[in-house]
Amino acid sequence: MTWRWEPWIASAIGVALVTAAAATARNPVFQGADPHAMMIDDEMWIFPTGGPGGSWAADRFGAFSSRDLRTWTSRGVILRRDQIRWIGDDGAKAHFLWAPGVATRDGKWYLYYSVGPQNPTPSRIGVAVADAPQGPYRDSGRPLVTGGRQANGQFEAIDPMAFVDPRSGKAYLYAGGSAGARLRVWELGRDMVSLAREVPVDQPPNFTEGAFMHERDGVYYLSYSHGHWDRPDYSVHYATARSPIGPWRYRGEILKSDASHQGPGHHSFVRTPAGDWLIIYHRWDQRSGTGPLKGERQVAIDRVRYGTDGSIAPIAMTDGDDAPMLPRIGRRRE
């Protein structure tokens, strides 16, 4: 997700994430953006930009969890901007945190995150480590990836997503965004806080930002956002491959604006304990228009259905009690 400085954003800087014991919601789940979601011990965790009580608290990250997708518990602040010692090394007057991605390996938890602005200084990606998903996370001490103008064009170092391949055991970092709209992939070192090598990949059609990787039945799904983050053309597209690094077969658009919800994107796919799949994403809950969209984005959760050929059916956005619940998703599949 690309950050742009606007007056309404300035008024939201410094708004603290709510730390109340719990919040209850249907669809949309809560206010926030860029949700990275995963199942941890049969509980859904969401790591967003912002969260309940004030989106765009751009100086910290929090986490939220639920066992039923109705009642959400705050896990508190997991990393603050003032804990990142290198953040001011670029000399920029202000810095913002957004688009977290979380991975786990060998009993440790890794929080990958974007640091803006992109201009006039390059955007950067950092990583922090913890012993538990709720932290506290300890920053690695240096940026993992730096954006800016490269030999083959502009690269915006945002929207990191780490994927540990269940088949090979290799870990990959996917990143890239609007400036240049270029996807880059690296194999991570075993320590998960260093880069072993960059992996050349083809650019998937209609890629803008927000890459996510998941694997199902031996098929690797690269999904990503297309369009402008604050306009109705923001949408989710996907491609498939037989490996996590391609080559990609473009499969089309699966999530787009409708009459009541605009600009859905920056998403995660999650497999439930029952064996079903969900998509967690952000959207604006307002009628169609030309944009730019105003107000706060909302996190929502909807069902994903796959065809016998491995394709993903177009996703219908739901409201209220039409949203999925964990106990009602389906019976466990062996």
Score class of each variant (00 low, 15 high):
G153C: 12
Y306S: 01
R197K: 15
M44Q: 03
V185T: 13
T318S: 13
G54E: 03
D285H: 06
G246T: 14
W5E: 14
F163M: 10
P292G: 11
S223T: 12
P204M: 04
M1P: 01
W8A: 11
L195Q: 05
D90F: 09
G176Y: 06
S123V: 08
S66A: 05
F269Q: 03
R216P: 08
Q134I: 13
S257N: 05
E198L: 05
G210F: 03
G291F: 11
Y137F: 14
M44N: 02
I125H: 04
P7A: 04
E215Q: 15
Y113F: 15
G246E: 09
M317C: 06
Q150W: 13
S223G: 07
S114H: 11
P232G: 08
V270I: 10
G218T: 08
L183D: 02
M1R: 12
G88A: 15
L188H: 09
G307V: 01
H261E: 07
Y281E: 01
L222F: 15
Y137M: 00
G76L: 06
Y221A: 12
R333M: 10
W86R: 07
G169S: 15
W109V: 05
P117D: 08
M38T: 05
I280L: 13
F64R: 14
E215H: 08
W248D: 04
A211N: 02
H261A: 03
P247L: 09
Y112I: 05
W229D: 02
T104K: 13
R60V: 02
Q134A: 15
M39F: 08
D258M: 03
A300F: 03
D90K: 09
G310Y: 11
W109T: 02
Q150G: 01
G101L: 04
I46H: 01
W56E: 11
M192R: 03
W72L: 12
R271T: 08
L79S: 01
R81V: 07
A63C: 15
Y224T: 00
R297Q: 15
R70F: 00
S178A: 01
D165A: 14
D42Y: 10
A171T: 15
